[in-house]
């Protein structure tokens, strides 16, 4: 009589045994990340190697968890770090505090800070959770200085030209039109269009169809 009860109880198990498997064998297997994945930040460079960060502290100002500490300084005239007068000479993010909301990316006027699909950060020390410019700033080839498994350094080389989905002024006519010049940096992603299905102009100046999502994500 209890055999019937066991069979009833095992019904769920038996049913799912023949369904497709959803578990991935992380870390051996890695699932692709969505294009707007909020992973850890990088600080980008222009194609000529100049840093994009100008030390304006807008990211620090907007950060809801106050995890960013930036200080600006005068660019040395003989060897400028970034174009213009000012560069970020201290840039630190405390990843124990960061909530990966992406407001810093939204606020950045030069797309210096963008988010990547990197998420494998583990620390054994609170000090190690504070990433300085040595870790955040991309290398000369645009590669992230990230250590971890399943990491292709050049997979991030197109994250330099992040695009707002809406225009800075909130005017729908300006949606999808890049607000920065076409030489804005190494590896510019295709602009995303916003709610309107308007033809968008990407950073290289070529016309793209509506709703285009860039390729090349792992």
């Amino acid at each position: 009589m209890f055999i019937g009860a066991i069979a009833r109880g095992m019904r769920v198990t038996w049913r799912n045994m023949f369904r497709p498997q959803v578990t991935t064998q992380y870390p051996e297997e890695v699932r692709p990340k969505p294009p707007r994945f909020h992973g850890r930040h990088v600080l980008n460079r222009y194609a000529d190697g100049m840093e994009k960060c100008i030390g304006c502290e807008l990211c620090a100002g907007v950060c809801p968890s106050s995890c960013i500490y930036v200080r600006g300084a005068d660019n040395p005239p003989e060897a400028p770090v970034s174009p213009g007068e000012r560069f970020g000479y201290v840039y630190e993010i405390n990843f124990l505090r960061c909530i990966f909301c992406g407001l810093c990316v939204e606020a950045c006027p030069t797309t210096a800070i963008t988010m990547t699909n990197l998420f494998e950060m583990s620390f054994t020390d609170r000090e190690d959770a504070i990433f300085g410019k040595d870790l955040l700033l991309v290398g000369e080839e645009g590669e992230s200085r990230h250590e971890g498994k399943n990491y292709d350094p050049l997979s991030l080389s197109k994250r330099g030209g992040w695009m707002r989905a809406t225009s800075p002024g909130g005017d729908a006519d300006y949606e999808g039109i890049p607000g920065w010049p076409s030489d804005a940096g190494r590896g510019v992603e295709t602009a995303e269009t916003g709610q309107h299905n308007l033809p968008s102009v990407n950073a290289e100046g070529s016309q793209e169809g509506s709703g285009a999502v860039s390729e090349g994500y792992p």
């Binding site: 100008i54 304006c56 807008l58 100002g61 213009g84 006027p109 030069t110």
Partner: peptide, 10 residues
């Protein structure tokens, strides 16, 4: 409009 690098910005 170089507000981000301007000391007056904000």
């Amino acid at each position: 409009l170089d507000c981000p690098v301007c000391d007056r910005g904000g």
